[in-house]
């Protein structure tokens, strides 16, 4: 519950830092789209900042290439607690179409394992699928991350009767 209390202070105006870990740029364009007056994430106080040290939420895109991995770890370590990460796009969520290439580590879940080894804790992750994720999906994901709306999806198991 302590995390919830901390998140409440963030909720008023989350400052976001955009961290690209080797994405194809489509997701990054959609992030910009979400911040422009057309979809206007600034209605919820979302503001883009240029340093991870100022950020409440990290907008994370890309499948984490090997080249960028050390820089990503450094950037995430610089984010103050509570660290909230929004993994945007199927690349960041599960590796996307690069899920088994030699040059990427396969998305945020894999990165989180590495971060744990380096002692960098992430307090909350919200996964936003899509290739690219729609601007609305990004706005919705941010609202889920900050606890404005309840998440819609849950695990489904369908059994075939025959």
């Amino acid at each position: 519950m302590k995390l919830e209390e901390k998140l409440k202070s963030v909720r008023r105006s989350p400052w976001v830092f955009h961290l690209n870990s080797g994405s194809c740029n489509a997701c990054d364009i959609e992030i910009l789209d979400a911040l422009t007056p057309y979809f206007d994430a600034e209605r919820f106080g979302v503001k883009l900042v240029v340093s991870p040290r100022h950020a409440d939420v990290v907008l994370f895109t890309g499948p984490v290439t090997r080249e960028v991995l050390p820089k990503v770890i450094r950037a995430l370590r610089a984010v103050p607690r509570p660290r909230v990460v929004a993994a945007i796009g199927s690349c960041a969520v599960g590796g996307g179409i690069w899920w088994d290439t030699y040059s990427t580590i396969g998305g945020f879940p894999k990165l989180q394992e590495i971060l744990k080894r380096y002692g960098v804790e992430i307090d909350r992750v919200v996964y936003i699928p899509g290739c690219p994720a729609r601007p609305e999906a990004i706005v919705y994901g941010l609202l889920v991350a900050l606890g404005y709306v309840k998440q819609k999806v849950s695990k489904v198991v369908k059994t075939v009767e025959s």
Binding site: Y127, P129, K152, V156, V160
Partner: peptide, 19 residues
């Protein structure tokens, strides 16, 4: 459907179980 944001990876899975 695009409002798929989830805080847990398991919530994004769907299984179809066949006998």
């Amino acid at each position: 459907e695009f409002e798929l944001a989830a805080t847990n990876l398991e919530d994004l899975k769907e299984d179809v179980v066949h006998r």
